[in-house]
């Protein structure tokens, strides 16, 4: 279980202080798929970096499976938006997926089986000895997902992972994330600025306000568990939910506007 309580982050540059996160409290239960959505520039990435233990918060606590997060937690894997910069170009696909497992000191046979099952789970069999830059953007992001899956995390953080791929690839990758989540029984926290994506993917959607960020609203997505791009997106309930999220995000933006005006 991921528990974020009263999280605060202010950046200091010289005498100026910028408040990025004001007060964030939410929980993600084990095995849940939760989407975080917010207006652009709302500190989503700051939040994710705090959860991943890459950034020290200014206040509040984060705990993962009961353990306070003080550095990168061992049971957590992350998929970055910038797949091209997050995969190591000097390593083949196999080596990229295998490197974190070597760090975990797993025996070679176990590593090999994890790598091949992760690559086949994301539909990339046969690309083991290619370099990432020889693959398309969507395939590179699949490699990054395979690396996260092979790591066998209890929690998977995804930071706008599909923001840089084309729409069709994106739809495929969304379905891939849902399929992997259902199969592997991991907790997924998925950050996006795309409202449709958040409603399509999540069991719950947490809406963030503009910076300085607080939780604006939260909804449970009561769509059936088996979703597909065609029917789910045409569902009346889907439209209702996305309208609600959209209104909340607009309200969040207006809220920011009025604080600026006043």
């Amino acid at each position: 279980m991921l528990k974020v309580t009263g999280l605060r982050k202010t950046y200091r540059s010289g005498a100026r202080e910028v408040e990025a996160l004001r007060d964030l409290t939410f929980t993600v239960e084990n095995g849940e798929l939760v989407c975080l959505v917010g207006p652009s520039g709302c500190g989503k990435t700051t939040l994710l970096r705090c959860i991943a233990g890459l950034l020290d918060p200014s206040g509040g606590t984060i705990s993962l499976d009961g353990q306070p997060v003080q550095g990168p937690p061992p049971g957590l894997a992350m998929v970055f938006q910038e797949y091209g910069r997050s995969l190591f170009p000097w390593m083949t696909v196999r080596d990229n997926v295998e490197l974190p497992l070597k760090q975990k000191k797993l025996p070679a046979a176990r590593r090999a089986s994890l790598v091949s099952s992760a690559l086949s789970a994301v539909g990339l069999e046969g690309t083991e000895s290619a370099y990432p830059w020889q693959l398309s953007g969507g395939m590179q992001q699949r490699v990054a997902i395979a690396r996260a899956v092979a790591y066998e995390p209890s929690t998977l953080l995804m930071d706008e992972p599909f923001a840089a791929v084309d729409a069709q690839t994106r739809a495929d990758l969304e379905d891939l994330v849902r399929a992997l989540w259902q199969r592997l029984n991991v907790t997924v926290l998925f950050i996006t600025h795309d409202i449709d994506e958040a409603v399509y993917l999540g069991q719950r959607v947490i809406m963030l306000s503009s910076s300085p960020t607080v939780v604006q609203d939260e909804i449970t997505v009561d769509l059936p568990a088996s979703r597909d791009q065609l029917h789910t997106r045409a569902d009346a309930r889907f439209t209702e939910l996305r309208t609600h999220v959209y209104e909340q995000i607009q309200a969040a933006k207006r809220g920011a506007q009025s604080t600026v005006d006043s």
């Binding site: 894997a77 190591f88 000097w90």
Partner: peptide
Amino acid sequence: VDSIQIDTARAYGISGPSRIRQVILPA
């Protein structure tokens, strides 16, 4: 060295000599 590469290494627990050998030196 790209900060995302460093973050990736950190997030996956690749630290110390191994980070230098596997990430910093090649980069």
